[in-house]
């Protein structure tokens, strides 16, 4: 699977409170959550983002609360992939479980600039910054995770193995 799109860039320690503020957690509806995605760190994001675009961030992306509403909101905005130097562990698990593609790649996270067009090949883990021509190799998922993603998330994976 390949995706390609314009990037939105953020710094280190983007926490789940800024990805989706708790004041909007009175609904589990992903489309409703998407309207407020990144509101406290980038107020215009939800209106600006286009389907297929890519989020790039620094270390410890998704730290803090375990709210699955955070990857749900990002996915419902149409974001095709999140590339970060590192992910907080609960966010990492949640993103895989709901089928939001994510890749850890510190080099790509440092070099890619906001607005660059980036393509990601999930089969090889290769990230290409089409704007600058640079390529990076993302951390490949272990086989178990690849099966989980291929199945379309945890529920589908567990059902297939039941």
């Amino acid at each position: 699977m390949k995706v390609s799109g314009k990037t939105h860039k953020y710094g280190d320690n983007v926490d789940t409170d800024v990805i989706i503020p708790a004041r909007y957690l009175n609904t589990p509806d992903a489309q409703e959550l998407a309207k407020h995605c990144m509101e406290d760190i980038d107020a215009g994001f939800a209106a600006r983002v286009r389907p297929g675009e890519i989020m790039v961030a620094g270390r410890n992306f998704g730290c803090g609360s375990s709210r699955e509403h955070a990857p749900l909101a990002i996915k419902a905005c149409g974001v095709a992939c999140v590339i970060a130097a590192t992910f907080a562990r609960i966010f990492y698990r949640n993103a895989l479980n709901i089928g939001l593609p994510i890749l850890e790649c510190p080099e790509a996270a440092a070099a890619i600039k906001a607005g660059d067009t980036v393509s990601v090949d999930f089969d090889t883990g290769v990230i290409t910054d089409e704007t600058t021509g640079q390529t990076f190799r993302g951390e490949p998922f272990p086989p178990f995770m690849q099966e989980l993603i291929a199945a379309g998330g945890l529920a589908a994976y567990r059902r297939a193995r039941a």
Partner: peptide, 23 residues
């Protein structure tokens, strides 16, 4: 526990960790 502060029970010598709703 689907709450990040589930790790609290480590005080009692348990392994406990926060997860999301799907988990």
């Amino acid at each position: 526990g689907a709450d990040s502060h589930t790790c609290t029970y480590g005080a009692l010598g348990a392994f406990s960790t926060g997860v999301g709703s799907t988990d």
